[in-house]
Design a protein around this nucleic acid. Structure first.
Lengths: 188, 188
DNA sequence: CAGTTAAGTAAACGACGGTTTACTTAACTG
DNA sequence: CAGTTAAGTAAACCGTCGTTTACTTAACTG
């Protein structure tokens, strides 16, 4: 959760990073509109005014949070033989503080301006590169399949939690997800 | 769109129905938080104050809109042999004014109170009955699979539109959806 | 240590939007 | 047609929340 460990001296860079990390969490589970600046900064142990100072406002903070979640790792280190397993491991067993980009994207749907930010980044940073990586005739369809399944999964894990998604993901569900993602790359 | 056809006399029932229909559309595509009472009533050709009078406020209007979208037709008329085709036909070729319940549900994720309303109705009116209908050992998993794919599809069709989802759904995507839903019932 | 600068804060501001209120008007009733 | 009631409206109200401002305080510099 990137909670402040010890009392820190005055460090703008560190404070901005704390705010960004808190923003990722709050945006991801509460939605853009319901994510209050005061909540985010409280979680980061910072002052609300600093959002405007360091990021230029809520919308820019959202864009920064999304951008940071979209690190370059998405496509690299992907192997076609173990695609499904790799993806699912990243989705459900990532024990780092990393916040998944897709829930943050969906969260932007609750605001007209944030939606445009999300749409653009979604296309440029996930859909297009993924489509390129799949390649071939059905590349776009494969990318769409990936997005549909991933987004549906996160929707019920993070946003509208259903009982069976809580805690450690049910093993049968996990198995299905693996085969589902693997089937995408295995499709001719 | 349930647009007012002709000038109507004063008819509270009709006005309430118009507001409800407009609410379904606006909630579905804009999200609960971004759906303004003034927008909804403008679309219905009604006065904003009537939402409080007829429905008891925005949250209650949301609950009513969701409830109305969840008609009883969900499970009835489903045949295991043609499950996939039937579902997809309902999702993408429904030319009635009917608004799909799932986008309205997802829309509730952008507000703390609306989320609870959505979660409860989602479970009681879709997940549980569907799980019952599937039956057997893996009933819950099957219901989860159905929800994941449906929700992902609507997310990109209605909320964060990607290029390939716009207009008439791409035929390859449609075909995949059919096989995906059919595979759920065909799984032992 | 005095002086300067950057970091951080508290409080106020202002817009937005759901709701309430006081009022107007259409429809019905006898 | 007079009188009553329900439907509808315009405007004001008020809480919330992002943002701005004026201020305080910590850290560094010579």
């Amino acid at each position: 959760m990137a909670t402040r460990i010890a009392e820190k001296g005055r460090d703008a860079e560190r404070t901005a990073a704390d705010i960004l990390a808190a923003a990722q969490h709050v945006f991801a589970i509460r939605g853009y509109a319901d994510a209050k600046i005061r909540d985010i900064t409280a979680m980061a142990g910072a002052n609300p005014a600093l959002v405007s100072r360091y990021f230029g406002g809520k919308l820019k903070l959202y864009a920064a949070a999304l951008d940071a979640a979209l690190d370059a790792r998405l496509i690299t280190d992907l192997d076609r033989a173990t695609f499904g397993e790799t993806i699912v491991a990243r989705f459900v067993e990532d024990r780092t503080d990393r916040v998944q980009p897709l829930p943050i994207m969906m969260s932007g749907a609750s605001d007209t301006e944030a939606r445009e930010v999300a749409r653009t980044l979604l296309h440029d940073r996930i859909f297009a590169p993924l489509s390129d990586w799949f390649g071939g005739e059905a590349a776009m369809l494969k990318a769409a399949r990936f997005m549909i399944v991933s987004t549906g999964f996160f929707a019920y894990r993070d946003q509208l939690p259903l009982d069976m998604f809580g805690g450690p993901v049910d093993s049968a569900l996990r198995e299905w997800l693996v085969s589902e993602f693997q089937a995408i790359v295995d499709t001719p």
